[in-house]
């Protein structure tokens, strides 16, 4: 792996630190919760030696939930990193360009009108998300796509999709509305091994592809002309990258609902940590995993009895972070 040799030492250090943080978060998530289990019993349950309730909590609830969070976070982190590099804009992430709102509208349509099951809801969200992102891309295309037009068209399309979602919600019963609301904000509650497996399989296939495309991705960041000069087939590389990013985001959304801001924030935070200009796909994945597992940990504990969907925590924290990011960038005069 020649690419591996060129990874700067700071990135390796950051990667190790992120991995350690993720591991610690996973251990805390599996070890603590409403159902109190002494650490020794947690280990016993993992080894298959606990009683029925303990094993249920550890093996059926907490472990797959934490792993789903880590994998979905990683998928969102990579998807966001690729989107942001291809659009050459920190705001070109799937939550801004209409993907998430399209996914939400698709899923709510499925819940309220078609009454489909879990698989149909996931499929509806993927179709909605991909459709919305494609529409935004086409509408923003005028002899090429520039970042800000993409973002602004995304805002417009998002507003229409939100109107559609709101309409569907007013036509639903409260129970459908609640089911939709929990889904809409993105939740990891009740995520089991059946969610871990597809996300893990998707990552196993797409991660190597993303790694192979890392070099063209870095060159694309320099601009189309520079990339062409370096011998990168620009359009083909861009299309492949977008396909990978859409697939990763779709898998994540189908598993956990439209969780906003992880895709936006993870690559940005990773860049700040590594102080490397280019897109660090690995670090973005780890940052995404840390963010989502951490947010889920908080969402289960902030309000005592009531468990908030994790998307509420990422939404509030992420909106504030985005506001800060914008103010910060603009104060420096970059924007």
């Amino acid at each position: 792996m020649t690419a591996a040799l060129r990874i700067p030492p700071r990135s390796v250090g950051v990667g190790l630190a992120l991995s350690a943080t993720l591991l610690a978060l996973l251990v805390v998530s599996v070890g603590t919760g409403e159902f109190e289990i002494p650490p020794g019993d947690v280990v016993a349950a993992l080894a298959g030696q606990g009683d029925r309730s303990t094993e249920f909590v550890v093996e059926t609830l907490r472990l797959p939930r934490a792993l789903t969070g880590a994998l979905v976070g990683a998928a969102l982190g990579i998807g966001g990193a690729i989107f942001q590099s291809v659009t050459r804009n920190p705001l070109g992430s799937p939550d801004i360009v209409g993907f998430m709102q399209g996914a939400a509208a698709g899923a709510v349509l499925e819940i309220v009108v078609l009454g489909g099951g879990a698989f149909a809801i996931a499929a509806g969200s993927v179709v909605g998300g991909v459709g919305a992102a494609a529409l935004v891309y086409v509408l923003a295309y005028r002899g090429g796509v520039t970042g800000y037009r993409l973002v602004l068209v995304g805002i417009g399309i998002s507003a229409m999709l939100i109107a559609v979602t709101d309409y569907l919600l007013t036509r639903s019963t409260l129970d459908q509305a609640l089911a939709a609301q929990v889904w809409l904000t993105g939740s990891l509650n009740g995520r089991g091994w059946e969610h871990v497996r597809p996300v893990a399989a998707g990552l196993a296939v797409l991660l190597p592809v993303a790694a192979l495309l890392a070099r063209p991705l870095r060159t694309l960041e320099l601009g189309d002309d520079a990339a062409r000069a370096l011998g990168v087939p620009v359009e083909r590389a861009r299309l492949a990258l977008i396909a990978v990013a859409v697939a990763l985001t779709a898998i994540a959304t189908a598993s956990a609902g439209p969780i906003v801001f992880v895709a936006l924030a993870a690559p940005q935070i990773a860049r700040r940590l590594t102080r490397v200009a280019g897109p660090g796909v690995g670090c973005a994945a780890l940052t995404g995993a840390v963010l989502l597992v951490g947010a889920d940990f908080l969402s289960q504990r902030l309000f005592g009895d009531v468990q908030l969907p994790v998307g509420v925590v990422t939404g509030v924290a992420g909106g504030a972070y985005l506001a800060w990011l914008l103010a910060h960038e603009w104060r420096r005069g970059a924007g």
Binding site: F35, L61, G117, D175
Partner: peptide
């Protein structure tokens, strides 16, 4: 709103009923 599985596990039930509830297949399986 959603099944709080840990709270259910905590009471160590030997029967769970959810007749007047919108139980999902995944909830039931767990």
């Amino acid at each position: 709103e959603q099944v709080d599985f840990e709270r259910v596990a905590e009471v160590r039930p030997d029967l769970v009923t959810a007749v007047e509830f919108d139980m999902k297949r995944g909830d039931y399986d767990k």
